[in-house]
């Protein structure tokens, strides 16, 4: 059987796995989870190649979190060159509409068709190269960006999977449920759920407060038959690190050899917890890929 091809599959031929980070609700930490996921996958092996694509077009946060705010995208004969967050090692490629804006305060006021066009360009025009994992950070909701993304990548469906991020409170879980209904409607396999902002440790007395309640994500995963990948408490060190990544970069830029952000990230309490999340997620991904190979065979090639 001849494989169907389109510009997206041709461009993304050398991308092994695409992991889409979803959540119905905004502000639950999709971007922070995407960033951590990318960093963890990057650290999982000295040769792992990871890409991170930010399709939140009206609120791109990935550049700031990776400390590459203000970088520009260059055009090459083979397409747009992504920004490499790890400098010359070039194993962590990043693309976001944030790199295309002149000023950081500029708003991107676009309706659906324009957003759709931008996403298609991200998928067809960026020189991603060989990637083991492409992590895609999405905006909240189940609308244009999500539909466009899945539509454009429909022919490489067997390489797609998703992770759902939620916070523990009922209002967020309701949106997470909508998000799950969406993935079921479009047949997108879920690797599991992550509960974020699950508790906050008082820096003064060590008392754990459940600022947004707790356990809701695990409960929902159990009810819906999803793997619960783990919960992450509010980690102020991480918040500060991802928030101010580029402030300290000027100091770190002198020793380009070391990927400063990764080093500082490894020192946060979240990094340790996230390792387990990564392990569980990769287990699920393995299972999924084995099943897929058995069923569709050649598509994986």
């Amino acid at each position: 059987m001849a494989l169907q091809e389109n510009p997206v599959t041709i461009r993304l031929k050398s991308v092994k796995n695409v992991i889409i980070v979803l959540s119905g609700k905004g502000g639950v930490g999709k971007s922070s989870v995407s960033t951590q996921l990318a960093l963890n996958l990057y650290a999982s092996s000295p040769i792992a190649r990871v890409g991170i694509l930010d399709v939140d077009l009206t609120g791109p946060s990935i550049p700031r979190m990776l400390g590459v705010d203000g970088h520009g995208v260059h055009q090459s004969s083979d397409g747009w060159v992504p920004v490499y967050a790890d400098g010359p090692e070039a194993r962590l490629a990043c693309m976001s509409v944030g790199f295309l804006l002149k000023n950081k305060g500029d708003s991107v006021v676009w309706r659906g068709p324009k957003k759709n066009g931008m996403i298609r360009q991200f998928l067809t025009d960026v020189r991603w190269g060989e990637l083991d994992y492409l992590v895609i950070d999405t905006p909240p909701g189940t609308s244009d960006e999500h539909l466009s993304l899945l539509e454009h990548m429909a022919l490489m469906h067997s390489r797609l999977s998703a992770v759902i991020v939620t916070t523990p409170q009922a209002v967020a879980l309701m949106d997470a449920m909508k998000c799950l209904s969406f993935t079921r409607a479009v047949n997108l396999p879920i690797l599991g759920m992550i509960e974020n902002m699950s508790g906050y440790v008082c820096p003064c007395c060590g008392e754990v407060s459940n600022v947004f309640s707790t356990g809701g994500g695990e409960e929902m995963a159990r009810k819906e038959g999803l793997r619960f990948l783990g919960s992450l408490p509010v980690d102020t060190e991480l918040v500060t690190l991802l928030d101010a990544a580029d402030l300290e970069k000027s100091a770190a830029v002198s020793d380009v050899q070391s990927f400063g952000l990764l080093q500082r990230y490894t020192a946060t309490p979240s990094a340790e917890l996230f390792k387990n999340i990564r392990t569980r997620m990769l287990e699920e991904l393995d299972v999924l890929n084995t099943v897929t190979e058995g069923r569709v065979g050649i598509v994986m090639k």
């Binding site: 906050y200 008082c202 102020t236 918040v239």
Partner: peptide, 18 residues
């Protein structure tokens, strides 16, 4: 800012870094 219900100390969960 967040006031710990146990020790009443206020801390910043989302620090205003800028």
């Amino acid at each position: 800012g967040f006031v710990c219900p146990s020790c009443k100390t206020e801390s910043q969960i989302f620090k205003p870094t800028t």
